[in-house]
Nucleic acid binder design. Sequence first.
DNA 1: CAGTGGTCTAGACCACAAT
DNA 2: TTGTGGTCTAGACCACTGC
Lengths: 247, 247
Amino acid sequence: MVVVASERAASREPKYYLVKRHLLDLIAALPPGTLVPTERVLTVELGTSRTTVRRALSELVGEGRLVRRHGSGTYVAEPKITWPLQMTSFTEQASASGYSTSTRLLEATRTRADEGIAARLGLRVGASTYFIERLRLVDDTPMAVETSHLSAARFPGLIPELRKKSSLYGVLAENYGVQPVEAEETIETASASPREADLLGVDTGSPILLLGRHSFDVDGQPIEYVRSWYRGDRYTFVARLSAHRQE
Amino acid sequence: MVVVASERAASREPKYYLVKRHLLDLIAALPPGTLVPTERVLTVELGTSRTTVRRALSELVGEGRLVRRHGSGTYVAEPKITWPLQMTSFTEQASASGYSTSTRLLEATRTRADEGIAARLGLRVGASTYFIERLRLVDDTPMAVETSHLSAARFPGLIPELRKKSSLYGVLAENYGVQPVEAEETIETASASPREADLLGVDTGSPILLLGRHSFDVDGQPIEYVRSWYRGDRYTFVARLSAHRQE
DNA sequence: CAGTGGTCTAGACCACAAT
DNA sequence: TTGTGGTCTAGACCACTGC
């Protein structure tokens, strides 16, 4: 392939981006699951190095356009899934959307609140809290890793109940008569740590949508602080906002 | 530096991630603006290659922990800015938050609706629409690139008005008596194209928080479709959700 | 076993900043 | 001019898949 030097100098476009656009053209009309050329083939075809090809591929993987399978090949990805961002529990969200979902409880232990958790739960530093880590799956594919923090004094015996019923919001409502009525959500980008990457089935460093949820009961008391690491390559979130809720 | 091979094999942690953790430790207690060692120095100190060092640095830059200045050095970054995600206009958001903000109008032209825009604005394909591209700045630093699409038939003479008043929502209210009362927001991760990177002052491929806003008037008629590319390394979004708005 | 993606290396050359 | 980050190369070696 011919890469005109002046073209790059004029546009300031890095070479890997030219490769990326080439790949976007290539896959635009291909159905999900289609095999794309191997990295070594692309290297020769496009007259570039494997590093440059891989940078373009990695960006497309992070954007959810391609999927890499180690030892097998690189494939056109399924389109992103749209997921509602709302107050209902994961289980309720699921059934409403028509997806089959499940949850794996990874950890449920007692620990002591650090400064950040203490402030958010209205406790003093060192107070006893629960740490709950769960893996959320949609159609048996990992969607998110979720960590929850709650006051242990406020919800005695929570962990065995949670192991029985699996829905945290269900346990809070039925066993403690507590319901979240308001929440502050924070949203930011992040990158997957080796542990998150392993759990989510993506590469270390993959783009993550990091959501924080700080929820409160009807009296304005904090109930829980949750952080969820969602696969950025697979999910788009939707929220409906109304003008009269301006602040 | 000594990197124990078995340590890596056991944990499956890539070497660059060890470098990343080393850097996180290093900068944990340093104030913003502090210079960190050069890439070549880190290469020698950590007994690795520059590629590996750069991968760790790039991830930290994408997470907003470090800032690179070409030809100068790499520095500890300012903390992220928290930005409210709500229905009010950019200008109103700004004054409420105590930040100094401004907007640069990059483009304001008439064009024809493609399939996606036509569907969202309730028009037929090829109908005349406005394309408005703006750069949003906070304290004179680029925050987001924003593109808006509106029906040209519904808002005749919009562009000259917009050039005079600069606030789109202000023009819509004062000149056309139209006010958005509800909106559907979509949120996903993306990566900066060379153009977006140039406008935002980040590297091509940097993490972006891509927000879509589809807003409607009191009669449920679509008003505009907006997409905003926010710097993922600089902003965290906050939204308040109430339980009674569940759907 | 051959072929694929995953990680890492050593080094070249460039663009830009500071002096 | 010197030193910084930015891009790209050619190749080694590993881990995994699938024949």
